[in-house]
Design a protein around this nucleic acid. Structure first.
Ligand code: FES
Ligand code: FES
Lengths: 163, 163
DNA sequence: GCATTAAAAGACATTGACGTCTTTTTTAAA
DNA sequence: TTTAAAAAAGACGTCAATGTCTTTTAATGC
């Protein structure tokens, strides 16, 4: 597993907020967790962290919820990784022996170096906005939990049948 | 973290056994764990697993210990990953949404696909024997825990001073 | 057989990732 | 000012990865 579940939740949450923003509205954790199939309170804490780090805005009280911050869409995914998983994947030796370095390389260093660098550069170069593609429905489905996704499809088919 | 600690222990353990083998001797878990700075019993269980899977041989009793099996040196690292971490890293979506596939891709799929494939192919193509390079001392140091490594250096320097 | 050695097995402990529930704080509307 | 809504905070729970300890099994030499 390249990234933690928390990273996945953070990214999907932010993308959902961005989608709602594009429709001109704020969203609550309840809606996000329900639509994406992600644990309510756990997601809350993660979004929380994002607010503290300036990647999201939040408003308490009625008509409150989460909204994008100024920098959100231009944020590289590496920043998200840093906030959720830390940078150990990129900075440490894959065998966890020490800080990764070519001077005192582990037996796997030369084999993984390029791959690790590619991953890091990709994550540096990819912005949140780069991931917002496709139409609304397809996009939501692409960030929803599989079972939920299947469920939504079934419901949709059922509705079509009824209609 | 690309791989688990268990994978690291497995690989380093096997490499140490291979090194001892090249000197014509068997090794006990005690020696391996001590020389590499790895937890004794935890390593034992992992080597155990390797024996069951045919990647190592073991002999109980006096003069016993671990030795290479016929296939050990020709084993691809992917096999080791499979035994320790499983293949989820390669087969599953990085966002853990479902099995990774291009038909129903997550927002990150296109960005990570090549990297995941590169990693998998490298692990398939790299054999245990490919990692056995350099002279004995340097090799041992390259698979030993950092602190232990530093400690050994200090002792060595101290000895030289004494001599 | 008996003592010794070392792996194998298994019970138990620790830690961090992940998840749930409750209480507190802040905000807006009536 | 009261009420309700929603985030924030924090206590608590669960589970898998990691690690320790003890007991059992098997092999060897005498
Ligand atoms: S030193 Fe191990 S990956 Fe670079
Ligand atoms: S579908 Fe997510 S990585 Fe391929």
């Amino acid at each position: 597993m390249l990234f933690s579940k928390s990273f996945g939740y953070a990214l999907r949450g932010i993308l959902y907020v961005a989608l709602a923003q594009s429709e001109g509205r704020r969203v609550q954790v309840d809606e996000i967790s329900e639509k994406l199939g992600v644990p309510r309170h756990f997601l809350g804490k993660i979004l929380n962290r994002m607010v503290k780090e300036g990647l999201l805005q939040s408003v308490k009280g009625p008509y409150g919820g989460f909204a994008l911050a100024a920098a959100t869409l231009q944020t590289p995914l590496l920043k998200l990784i840093e906030l959720t998983d830390g940078l150990g994947t990129f900075n440490n030796c894959v065998l966890r022996l020490h800080a990764c370095n070519a001077v005192n390389p582990c037996p796997l260093h030369h084999q993984v170096m390029d791959i690790k660098n590619n991953l890091q550069h990709m994550m540096m170069g990819t912005l949140v906005s780069d991931l917002m593609i496709g139409d609304r429905e397809a996009f939501i489905r692409s960030i929803a939990t599989e079972e939920l996704d299947g469920l939504l499809q079934k419901i949709t088919n059922h509705d079509e049948h009824d209609a």
